[in-house]
Simulated scan of single mutants.
Amino acid sequence: MTIMLIEALAARPPLIVEGAMATELEKRGVDTANALWAAMALLDRPEAIRDVHRSYFEAGANIAVTDTYQANIPAFERLGLRHADAERLIALAASEALAAREDYRLAHVDAAQEGRPLLVAGSVGPYGAFLADGSEYTGAYELPESEYQDFHLPRMHVLADAGVDLFAFETMPNLGEVRALANLLADEFPEAQAWMSFSLRDAGHLCDGTCLEAAAAAIDDIPQIGAVGVNCVPPSMVEEAVGRLRSATGKAIVVYPNNGDVYHPGTKTWTPAPGDEDFVRLAPRWLEAGASLIGGCCRTTPDDIRRLARRLGADDGSRGRQG
């Protein structure tokens, strides 16, 4: 694993994070309405994962996020797979993202691509995602720190060994889990970097009720966490959340909201956004407020990321032809 996030930000802010994986896999015929969600594609459609990552690089993304949010050892074992097979599938997710980046580079070897950061972040979803009941949006669970770490450590080892550039601790709703991951990173992966991205119940609080500023401050002394932020929140929450984070930390700020649609965990379905939640229109305000990594989460598309890159001035000719 290489340390690249802070260096990449220094070279060319803002960095664009890719959009939804599950939404694009569904368009390719993958059934995601199950406990594995987008990770189901690892069992029989891994080439579709590579295709999705490649589409985001083509759209202007700097950072691909591996299809491992819901891919963890216990989830695969619950399906009857052996531990070794579960590790192989997690490694496959990393390999598909890395291969998509290489495919993109080979197709865009012109001088315009020189200096454009292209990173692969290994997604580490919360314990609540394993529960597959929407707990990542409530934070209504609690484990001892050692149990959180035992849950996350095998996946992180596989991702690191597979060659991801950093970890993406995503949709974290629970301060206890946040602390456990920060300490795990420091103790077990001292050469690695990560971002820590929270799930919110409102613009000022994690889903478990923790004040957003307090959550950021709790990990401010972990230098390996190069960015903190929020993801899979409605676009309308982001600007205030960025301001709160900016007041509490000097770290880079990462934001990648969903498109505003409302998720129903019981049926694993979505209701369209109730109003004008166009995150591309709102994104310049997030940049002005202090965000330096900006992308999309659930229900966002390569077209959204293409418009985002152009809107933020990140599509400056160094990204190749967008088609």
Rank of each mutant, 00 (worst) to 15 (best):
F198A: 14
L184S: 04
D202Q: 07
A168G: 09
A192R: 15
M196T: 14
M172A: 05
S197C: 13
V164M: 07
V164F: 10
D187Q: 07
A192P: 03
P173K: 02
D161L: 04
D161H: 06
F198R: 12
F167K: 04
N183T: 02
A180H: 04
R201V: 15
G204H: 09
L181E: 11
D161R: 08
W195L: 13
M172R: 04
D161G: 02
S199K: 13
L181Y: 02
G204Q: 14
S197P: 13
M172V: 08
A194V: 13
S197I: 14
D187A: 04
N183L: 02
S197N: 15
F189D: 04
M172D: 07
D187F: 00
A194K: 08
F189Y: 01
P190W: 01
V164D: 08
A180D: 11
F189T: 06
G204L: 11
D187M: 00
F198G: 15
P190K: 01
L181G: 10
G204E: 14
S199I: 09
A182C: 11
L166Q: 14
A160Q: 13
A162H: 08
D202I: 12
P190F: 00
A168F: 06
D165L: 06
E170F: 03
S199C: 08
N174M: 02
E177V: 03
F189R: 03
L166K: 07
A180R: 04
E188M: 00
L166A: 15
V178Q: 09
A192E: 09
L200Y: 07
N183K: 11
A194M: 10
F198W: 09
L181K: 06
R201D: 13
F169D: 07
T171S: 06
M196F: 11
A192Q: 11
G204D: 13
A192M: 13
M196I: 15
A180G: 08
E188D: 05
P173C: 08
D161C: 06
D161F: 00
E191N: 08
A192G: 08
G204R: 12
N183M: 04
V178N: 09
A186I: 02
F167P: 03
E188C: 01
L184M: 05
H205E: 07
E177M: 12
A186L: 05
A168S: 12
E170W: 03
S199Q: 14
F198N: 14
E191V: 04
D165N: 13
A182Y: 02
F198Q: 15
L185G: 01
W195S: 10
D165P: 06
A182W: 01
N183Y: 00
L184Y: 01
A186H: 02
D202M: 09
F167W: 02
A168R: 12
A182K: 02
W195K: 12
L185E: 02
R179L: 12
E188Y: 00
H205V: 10
M172E: 10
A203D: 15
L166R: 09
E188A: 02
P173E: 03
L181C: 11
A180F: 01
H205R: 13
W195V: 11
W195M: 12
P173W: 01
H205A: 12
D165H: 15
A186N: 08
A180V: 06
R179S: 10
A168D: 11
E170M: 07
P190S: 05
V178S: 14
G176V: 06
F169R: 05
A182H: 02
A192T: 09
A160I: 02
F167Q: 09
F169E: 08
E191L: 01
F167R: 07
S197Q: 14
F167L: 04
D165Y: 10
D202P: 13
L185P: 01
F169L: 07
